[in-house]
Amino acid sequence: MLDKLKKIWQVLNRPSVHYSLGFLTLGGFVAGVIFWGGFNTALEATNKEAFCIGCHEMENNVYQELQSTIHFTNRSGVRATCPDCHVPHNWTDKIARKMQASKEVWGKVFGTINTREKFENKRRELAEHEWARLKANDSLECRNCHNFTYMDFTRQSPRAAQMHSTSLASGEKTCIDCHKGIAHHLPDMAGVEGF
C-alpha cells in the first residue's frame, strides 16, 4: 500500500521523467477541455428555470406569482424565464451573480426563507438586491428583450409613450425605476423611491 502511494507520488512529483512531454501537454489539454466543459455544463444546468424552481421556496412563492403576469403568458407566446431576468448574459457578470445566488441557496439550507412568512419577511431585502443590481446595470436584463431603439411610441398607450419618450429617453430613469413588481408581488414599499 505505502509502496504504491510512493510510486504515484513519484509520478506526480516529476511527471516529465515518466511520461513524454507531448503526452503531458495533450493530456493537460484534454483534461482542461473536460473540466471547462463540465464547468460550463454545470453552469448551463443551473441556468435553467427548472433548477431555479427546484427548491420549494422559489416554486411556492415567486414562481406562482409569475404565472399570472404578462411575462408568463401573452398573445405572442414569448416567455421570460427566471434566468432571463436574473442572470446576466456576459460571463464575468454571470459568475458574479452565481456567487451571490449561492448565498440564497445558503439561505435555503439554513432555513431563513423556508416558510411563506419567513420569505415575506425577507422579501424587501431580496427585492432591494435586485433593484440595486438592475439600477446599476441600467436594466440590462430587461433590455436584452425590450430594446429601446425599436420601441414604437405610436403603438404604445399615451401614458407609456409619454414616460418612455421623456424620462427614459433622456437616460434619467431606467426600466426598474418605474416597473417594479412586474413579475412578483411587492414587499411593503414604505420609503421606496417612487411609492
Binding site: S68, T69, I70, G181, H185, M189, F195
Partner: peptide
C-alpha cells in the same frame, strides 16, 4: 381611462397612489 392589470393594491402596496398621490 387606463388598464390596471397587475397593479398591486393591498396592505403592503398601493400602486395607484404611486401615480395619483400628491407627491407623485
Amino acid at each position: 381611462p387606463h388598464k390596471i392589470d397587475g397593479y398591486q393594491l393591498d396592505l403592503k402596496v398601493n400602486k395607484c397612489m404611486s401615480c395619483h398621490a400628491r407627491h407623485r
